[in-house]
Computed example of a mutant assay.
Amino acid sequence: MGNSVGTGKQRALVIASVFVTTLWNLRFFLNLSKGSGEGSKPREPLVILVWEWPSKQVPSISRDVCQELYSITGCQLTTEKQLLHQANVVVFPHSRLQPGRDKLPKEKLPGQNWVWVSLESPSNTRALAEWNQTFNWVMTYRQDSDIFIPYGKLVPNRSATVNIPAKTNLVSWVISNYHRTQKRAEVYKNLSRYLHVNVYGKANNKPLCKECLLPTVSKSKFYLAFENSIHRDYITEKLWRNSLLAGTVPVVLGPPRANYEQFVPADSFIHVNDFDSLEELATFLKTMNSSRYQQFFAWQKRFSVKLYTDWRERICSICAAYPLLPHGHLYPDLQSWFNS
């Protein structure tokens, strides 16, 4: 009897939540469709509460930061937890959810949508099993996320010209967290048998200051854009900033080539898996002539690199996506989804 009563209450809460969400969506779309003519009431702003800020450094946030910085109207961003009861969306970065549920609000309001946020790969994401039936939306680097937040992208730029920085060495790599068990450590060790790699970063006791990274890396013809783990769509700043923005050719280790080609042109990078052996890859890099090398920069004639580094921009993107998101949906098994 006790279980059936509990189940009945749960069903009632679900029905109430869906009902309230439906009313909110209807109101949202009606207000969105209203013109700004005389007599029309301005639609209520969407309130997004960031429960914990994703990064250690919390930037200045005004209520209208989305409009002020990114021209996204009708949206208010806040980190004030006392506004929980006004929030339409609550954002929870996974890194701040540890060690468990005690950091979550005690209750979830009907019609309120919770967002799980992570830029880490599944290999570096712990304790997902306890978050079943908790979050409505996911916000990750995965293209199939409800809110897709890549590390970077290429944006059209027809007036762009090819700019290849002067080169003084062949290959470089910046690495801070070196673990011998990682695939990238194995590949580097074997590749370095056939060519010299200029290694920088904490792992090699050659840390680079923030302003020094790009000028240093740009002097290399090639950059080892090796991801710390291999997962679908997990293509990080190692490609976008350290390689393409720096003006060097990325040698990538990550998901398959076809996955990279969903983000960047096929002739803009070299994939480790393009070769039968690392010796063959090393020979390809060492013997490349100037004409062939310049072809890797053809993308610069059509595109420029946009980096996503500001969490305010990422979170404000929820506002633009909100009308099209699946309201009332819950992820029954977050771990299974993220590891798929």
Rank of each mutant, 00 (worst) to 15 (best):
Tyr331Asn: 01
Leu46Ser: 01
His94Val: 00
Glu80Asp: 14
Gly8Arg: 09
Glu130Cys: 06
Asp276Cys: 13
Pro215Gly: 08
Arg184Gln: 05
Asn113Tyr: 03
Cys319Trp: 05
Leu330Thr: 02
Ser145Gly: 05
Ala320Thr: 14
Leu307Ile: 12
Gln133Arg: 13
Ser172Phe: 03
Leu154Trp: 10
Arg142His: 08
Thr79Gln: 13
Arg126His: 11
Thr140Gln: 05
Thr78Gly: 10
Ser71Met: 10
Cys212Lys: 09
Gln57Phe: 01
Ile48Gly: 07
Val65Ser: 12
Asn169Met: 08
Leu13His: 09
Leu13Glu: 11
Pro99Asn: 13
Val155Gly: 13
Arg126Met: 09
Ser40Tyr: 07
Ala320Leu: 14
Thr236Arg: 02
Pro122Phe: 06
Ser192Thr: 02
Arg43His: 03
Leu170Asn: 00
Asn163Gln: 12
Glu211Trp: 02
Ser192Pro: 02
Ser60Lys: 10
Thr22Leu: 15
Lys81Glu: 11
Gln10Ala: 15
Gln335Tyr: 08
Gly6Ile: 04
Tyr194Asp: 07
Leu69Trp: 07
Arg180Thr: 12
Pro42Gln: 12
Arg302Ser: 15
Ser304Arg: 09
Glu186Thr: 05
Lys9Ala: 14
Thr21Arg: 06
Leu26Asn: 06
Ser291Arg: 07
Ser336Asp: 01
Leu13Lys: 11
Phe284Pro: 01
His179Met: 13
Glu44Pro: 07
Ile48Glu: 07
His327Ser: 10
Lys221Met: 13
Leu253Val: 06
Lys9Phe: 14
Pro122Ser: 06
Lys106Ser: 12
Lys41Ile: 07
Ile61Gly: 01
Gln335Thr: 08
Tyr141Gln: 03
Thr248Trp: 12
Lys286Arg: 10
Ala16Thr: 06
Gln133Asn: 15
Pro326His: 08
Glu261Arg: 05
Asn273Thr: 12
Ile230Thr: 10
Asn25Ala: 06
Lys306Leu: 13
Asp267Glu: 13
Phe148Ala: 01
Thr181Leu: 13
Leu119Ser: 06
Val117Ala: 01
Arg142Lys: 14
Ala129Ile: 05
Tyr151Asp: 05
Trp299Gly: 15
Ala266Glu: 14
Val65Phe: 08
Ser159Ile: 00
Ser71Lys: 12
Gly152Trp: 10
Trp51Ser: 12
Leu244Gln: 09
Gln86Glu: 15
Pro93Cys: 09
Gly74Ile: 02
Arg184Ser: 07
Phe92Asp: 03
Trp24Glu: 08
Asn136Phe: 03
Val20Ala: 04
Arg292Val: 01
Leu208Val: 10
Ser4Trp: 12
Leu195Thr: 00
Ile48Cys: 07
Val90Asn: 09
Pro255Met: 08
Ser268Leu: 06
Gly152Lys: 10
Tyr194Leu: 04
Phe29His: 13
Arg11Trp: 12
Ala246Pro: 13
Thr140Trp: 08
Arg27Tyr: 10
Gln86Ala: 11
Arg142Glu: 00
Ile230Leu: 14
Trp114Gln: 02
Leu77Asn: 02
Gln112Asn: 13
Pro110Glu: 00
Val197Thr: 03
